[in-house]
Design a protein around this nucleic acid. Structure first.
Lengths: 245, 245
DNA sequence: GGGGTTTTCGACTATTAGTCGAAAACCTTT
DNA sequence: AAAGGTTTTCGACTAATAGTCGAAAACCCC
């Protein structure tokens, strides 16, 4: 309660509240490739954590939004037009997370379509999230948060649009979902559920025939290419509308 | 961990990345009371936004975690022991969100049980989120994010433990859920679903009989009082375990 | 004890999800 | 061209979960 006066005192000054720390943004860039969920990492050339791997990151500009700062630093590591989806994850504030000093970090989740071929710098590589190399700072834990968020959203949003090519067969989509989710996925269920929800729709075209033969698969596409919640949480709800029961 | 940073501080300059902005934390404290979902707000005595209403907030200390900073500033407005749940929501960075200058803000969601009677300062009051008074800064939008988060989590986690009393009847819980969700809730479904998921369990005792008469209701309690995901997202999953399909 | 009230719970229906296999539609080889 | 192989597609079935409804239970007061 004694904080109260202290707190109110802070309005008077033009908010030089606390500038003893800096703020950085970082991005967990994920894609599905060859049955692996991969994250984009770059190898540090200088301390701290020399030769360990780090997420794309960088400082927040003086009058910059977090979202644009992430885009700016991402552009140094990957073709920004290949980022199909970008959303804020969380902000880390642990005092010991950076040995150089106090650095707040706001993490973002970025997704790249599986058929994109972004050119990446020489010090940068894709690593499967199930077999990470030594990772600097708290970045391994942040990658864990990012994959958890992706997996949750795969089942109640249309976020798959950011992982899949523009058009795809059900079998391809099944593989993408299975590797992203980390468990088997039934192609029949996937097709039926996503179609009923209006998330995907068949196109006129069929996939080019493969050497292996087989019936040509129809190509599907995502109905929307922005994030939509498709499986609304409506538990316990009775039939009629209204506010009170 | 401070010794750690001191130790490695010899490597480089202590990250003078960007310190042109300050960082504050703010809390959306929600509770259910009298069939209303209410947020805790306090009325500003001085500019900016004089006499408008503001969320509990305050600066982040120099070597403070975000979570402890929220707790510290919350303590000025409400009895901290009444906060049954606290989780990070999001970080806002819009340059114009504070007319006094550049202030990043990390918002938290805090929940108070409906039977708690926290004493609050004179300048502070509970306001229903459906009928907010003039609200300062971007706080109205942040309250919107908080209620959306709460509503989503009510249907796939046990977060109701933070809104309900320690023991309660199904009818009471139904009212709490209906108010928080903003739509009618079936007591039968609620009881059956939450019991099957193991979220709630009956106690030995029964509710005290009311003047209106009627069969005495059994008192229930939440099985856990920390956040647990009870409705795992497992769509598209076939029966057997394993990684590939 | 009777009438009123509220809770509880079983039985039924509806919707959604998961399983399985046959038919369709292509390929290559003979 | 016919046969055999391969992959996709889709319908029919089963299982699980969610929602509806009403009757029975268990209290009150008169």
């Amino acid at each position: 309660m004694d904080d109260k006066s202290l707190e109110r005192g802070s309005f008077a000054a033009p908010a030089p509240l606390g500038s003893e720390f800096s703020h950085e943004v970082l991005a967990v860039v994920l894609r599905v490739r060859r049955d692996r969920l991969e994250a984009l990492l770059w190898q540090r050339a200088i301390p701290p954590f020399q030769s360990e791997w780090s997420l794309p990151c960088g400082p927040l500009g003086a009058s910059e939004r977090l979202g644009t700062a992430v885009g700016r630093h991402l552009a140094a590591k990957v073709d920004i037009t290949d980022i199909a989806h970008l959303e804020q994850l969380e902000t880390r504030s642990d005092p010991g997370r950076d040995p150089r000093g106090r650095v707040l970090a706001t993490a973002y989740l970025a997704l790249v379509a599986s058929d994109a071929e972004p050119g990446i710098p020489a010090d940068t590589a894709w690593h499967p999230v199930t077999a990470l190399p030594p990772v600097a700072f708290d970045h391994a834990s942040i990658i864990g948060s990012a994959t958890a968020r992706l997996r949750a959203k795969l089942s109640y949003t249309n976020i798959g649009f950011a992982l899949a090519p523009a058009s795809f067969t059900i079998a391809q989509l099944r593989d993408i979902y299975a590797t992203a989710l980390g468990h088997p996925v039934s192609a029949t269920n996937l097709q039926r559920i996503l179609t009923r929800r209006g998330v995907i729709a068949p196109t006129e075209r069929a996939a080019p025939s493969t050497a292996a033969g087989g019936r040509p698969a129809t190509l599907y596409r995502f109905a929307a290419r922005n994030l939509v919640i498709t499986n609304p949480f409506a538990a316990f709800r009775p039939a009629a509308a209204g506010i009170r029961s």
